[in-house]
């Protein structure tokens, strides 16, 4: 009996062990190696050695400040755009979707079933100089006669917004769908206008979805380099582009490693500032 009891206590740990071990060895330990690498000095030919080289961090910030700022800027704009664009649709599906809800949700996630790179290449086609978007905008004199969209920040932000849109729309939908419709009826019974009922009841209740969607969109967007590479020019490059080329083309590992940590820190700071603005309860409520 005692043995069985002990055995039952052991079961959860046995279930956890293989998966957590995998995450430990291939997620946590690598972060340690990344930290170790970021404080090394030397060069690829003579080899790198650990020397508490904090200078890597200062050099990264000094040399690549525009790319860091641009990453946060593009990710921020794309997140706000995604929120504004998808909120009404999430609302529409949650409140008017009826029994078509699941089908409409399938439409929302449909872009995810096209390979990321291929859908970004599709935007390259849509925004290309001979495409109908550029022609229409030139016709409307929004763009000058030689004006283009590709290789501009507009194209990069457009691509980022599109690529991460489902990350925003799905949590919004989930939080809107959970709202008890009787609360809205109550508000209207108490003579709140439709608009007022939305602002005072629906919007606050959907805030967890807004917070979750914002984080899920902002974090991958800030680290992205594919949109800047395929839709932008070197002037639109984000920090992801720099990290990628330092690691894989220039083999300047310590610089690339320190930039990865600065990116993580920058994201954490941005999330913390955001958390202060919306309240930490909302944040931890959705995170765990």
């Amino acid at each position: 009996m005692g043995l069985l009891h002990r055995h039952r206590q052991l079961t959860p740990y046995l279930l956890l062990a293989p998966g957590l071990l995998w995450l430990g060895v291939f997620f946590v330990v690598p972060l340690g190696f990344l930290a170790y690498q970021s404080l090394q000095s030397g060069n690829f030919d003579i080899g790198y050695s650990f020397s508490w080289a904090w200078g890597n961090y200062w050099n990264a910030v000094r040399d690549y400040r525009p790319q860091f700022v641009r990453s946060l800027e593009y990710a921020g704009i794309a997140t706000v755009l995604a929120l504004v664009v998808s909120y009404p649709v999430a609302y529409w599906i949650a409140f008017r979707g009826g029994r078509w809800k699941n089908l409409l949700l399938l439409f929302i996630v449909a872009p995810f079933f096209v390979t990321y790179l291929i859908r970004t290449l599709a935007w390259e086609t849509i925004l290309s100089d001979n495409g109908f978007v550029v022609h229409t905008l030139q016709h409307l004199h929004v763009l000058g006669p030689g004006g283009r969209l590709l290789a501009t920040s507009t194209a990069v932000v457009t691509g980022i917004t599109y690529n991460f849109l489902p990350f925003m729309a799905l949590p919004l939908y989930v939080s809107l769908e959970q709202i008890d419709h009787r609360l809205l009826e109550a508000a209207q019974d108490l003579y709140a206008s439709k608009w007022k009922a939305f602002v005072r009841v629906t919007l606050p209740l959907s805030l967890p979805g807004v917070v979750a969607g914002t984080l899920l969109t902002f974090i991958p967007a800030a680290g992205d380099f594919i949109n800047a590479q395929l839709l932008g020019s070197p002037e639109n490059h984000m920090i992801g582009n720099v990290i990628q080329s330092k690691f894989l083309e220039l083999t300047d590992y310590p610089a690339a490693a320190s930039m990865s940590f600065i990116l993580m820190a920058a994201i954490l700071v941005a999330v913390a500032v955001y958390a202060r603005a919306v309240g930490t309860e909302q944040l931890t409520g959705t995170a765990v």
Binding site: P30, L31, Q37, A222, G223, F247, A257, S260, L263
Partner: peptide
């Protein structure tokens, strides 16, 4: 339990480029 939950949540909230880069340094080293 709480620690396990965090451990599951962390990789989801880390930018992919950091996941890729840190594994690269592990394998390189």
């Amino acid at each position: 339990r709480a620690a396990t939950n965090i451990m599951i949540f962390l990789p989801l909230s880390t930018p992919e480029i950091v996941l890729g880069a840190s594994l690269l340094t592990l394998f390189l080293n």
